[in-house]
Design a protein around this nucleic acid. Structure first.
Lengths: 221, 221
DNA sequence: TGTACATCAGTGAACGCGCGTTCACTGATGTAC
DNA sequence: TGTACATCAGTGAACGCGCGTTCACTGATGTAC
């Protein structure tokens, strides 16, 4: 049972890749279908039967690749978490270059939060799936999710905080636990916008609210 | 169809109240059973059939009192929201008296946040139910939930922020939108502790994290 | 005060649904000789 | 290079489940006369 490669993306049926036996690439096809469902309705929408239906395969075929539904959802959750990280990195990459290391560190810190909130509002289904932790697992500050594919959101946030310390923006004494302060604020806003009382505000309002929350974090951290 | 009185509390069967016809008090009995289920497993655990089973009544009897499952869950959600508010008020009531109005306003603001977080960690099922907004409703900053039963959590928070302004702790220019900053941080921590990566930390750690987040809010607001 | 009646809270049975998971299978593939 | 065989990815059919919701009903209650 080899580790599957990255899914081909939720769009592509990718006709004849024939990398493997029969279907060719069923594990990834299932993952893609599941990602599509999660995108539309969050983790609860990932039904084994519907996933196999979309992959054009018998319902029980999924059991060749995933132990059970929970295993599939877990895989989808990890993929969604990787997408959170990727969005944060994209936002980081869009930060304009500066010679001022302080301004740069600040801008990068803000980009990390902005990317997180942007992902949440743009892809609420995936966002909810990424943070859906089944009752029996505890991963504390882990969020290992992304695995070999790069840094996790938690690690990206941590690195940006380290930069704030290095550049003298954040006193070293304030560094410990700072992830959780920033994370709480940004995550809370995201959730309130997606599922909660702030649902239905416009993208502009959402962005403004995000910047306000990040302002608060910068001041209060 | 009279407005039902407050449920008798999730514990009590309350033998013969005979306030109404047959069962006596079925609407409240259903609400109590539903609250019990929500307490154990959140809004998704509120199944009409299980609710009526626990109330000792035929499955369809529920339709005399609730239009459908969504209406029942909505009622439970409102009851849960009222409990959030009640917990916040209890925390407020426990703030020691002071002559210093500034210290008092600060302490009360902190109590509001502390009560919110405490409720979330102590009653995660109810907390999730309170903030479960069905896809088709938008209540923006409303959170009217508690209705005639008293102030809503949002109103309690707002009042405590007003006090910070009155006592000069918070500049008036910072007041607009401050609810959402505070709410985001406190809500985010709650969610991360209940459902997310911070699940499984000890109550002591949870309390400490809560105080840290409230510190951040006070500084950054 | 006593009787007839309308109301409507709760019953009993049934429906169709999609779900996760199991079983014994089949048949294309890759491999050994 | 050609044939026999083992592997195991995907099939087809079936299971039991709990769910929400509907229907026509029954029988205790409160009310009108």
């Amino acid at each position: 049972m080899p580790e599957a490669a990255e899914p081909t993306g939720p769009a592509g049926p990718a006709p004849e890749r024939r990398t493997t036996y029969r279907h060719g690439n069923l594990r990834n096809a299932l993952l893609d279908a599941a990602l599509e469902l999660a995108r539309e309705g969050g983790p609860d929408s990932v039904a084994l039967r519907e996933v196999t239906r979309r992959a054009g395969v018998a319902p029980n075929a999924a059991y060749r690749h995933f132990a059970d539904r929970a295993a599939l959802v877990h895989a989808v959750s990890q993929a969604a978490m990787a997408r959170v990280a990727r969005t944060m990195e994209a936002e980081l990459a869009a930060v304009p270059a500066t010679d001022d290391p302080v301004a740069r560190a600040r801008a990068r810190f803000r980009a990390v939060g902005t990317g997180y909130i942007r992902f949440a509002t743009e892809e609420p289904g995936w966002f909810r799936t990424a943070f859906h932790v089944p009752a029996d697992m505890t991963y504390a500050t882990d969020t290992t999710a992304a695995g070999a594919e790069g840094l996790t959101p938690f690690e990206i946030l941590g690195a940006s905080l380290d930069d704030l310390v290095t550049t003298g923006v954040l006193p070293e004494s304030r560094r410990p636990g700072a992830e959780f302060l920033a994370w709480s604020a940004v995550h809370g806003l995201s959730v309130l916008m997606i599922d909660g009382p702030l649902r239905g505000i416009t993208p502009d309002q959402a962005h403004a609210a995000g910047q306000d929350v990040i302002d608060m974090i910068e001041r209060g951290i």
